[in-house]
Amino acid sequence: MEETQLLLDDVVQPEEIQRYRAVYEKAAEAKQLTDQNKFSFAYCLVRSKVKSDVRYGLQLLRELYDGTRNDDAKRDYLYYLALGNARLNEYETALKFLDAILLIQPGNHQAKNLKEEITRRMTREGYVGMGIAVGAGALLVGGLTAAALALLKK
């Protein structure tokens, strides 16, 4: 489980993204782009701090997924699509990708672990979000009560 947390929180340095981008663009320019070049660049991008990089990485992964008939490759692409969406806090989308893996491979520990971690984060962030909403609601009610009391005293 700790490994999954580290994977979700791993951030690639901008220099590494540039290095992979250069390899990807050079191969594309020479019309020698392979699925491995594309995947390496996409995987690098989904670990970026920059959301637009993550989204571009997801786009490349989707293209790879759509372009292969290899079931093992499809499973890997689905996993990294889930990872990238989770990094964008698009948890429901991430869970759909993981459920697709688990439908075919119910014993896939990697997908199970990522699903558990995403569910844990959803729960934690949901409670945090609810706590903020409850706190804001309490402040509003308290403010309205104080205003009403002030009016009654006049």
Rank of each mutant, 00 (worst) to 15 (best):
Q110C: 02
G126H: 01
E92T: 12
G131I: 00
I101K: 05
E125W: 02
V12Y: 04
L103T: 13
L149V: 14
D76G: 14
K74I: 09
Y65V: 00
I132E: 05
N108K: 10
E90V: 04
K112L: 15
A111K: 03
A28E: 15
Q5M: 12
M122L: 00
R21E: 15
R124V: 07
E29N: 12
A42T: 04
I104T: 14
N113H: 09
V23E: 13
A94W: 04
E125H: 01
V54I: 15
I17Q: 01
Y65C: 03
A146C: 02
T4F: 03
L61M: 08
L98A: 04
R124W: 02
Q32L: 12
T4V: 14
A100T: 15
Y65T: 00
D72F: 15
K96Y: 13
A136F: 13
K49M: 12
R69L: 11
F41R: 08
V50I: 10
G67K: 03
I118S: 05
Y127W: 13
V11D: 05
K51C: 04
L60I: 08
L151M: 08
K112T: 13
E2D: 13
L7D: 13
L88F: 03
E15G: 08
T34D: 02
A86E: 03
A27Q: 00
Y77S: 02
K112I: 14
E63T: 06
V54M: 14
V12R: 09
M122R: 01
T119H: 00
L83R: 00
A28F: 08
R62I: 03
E63M: 08
E90M: 13
T4P: 06
G137A: 10
V11A: 14
L139V: 12
I118K: 06
A94I: 04
G142N: 07
T145Q: 05
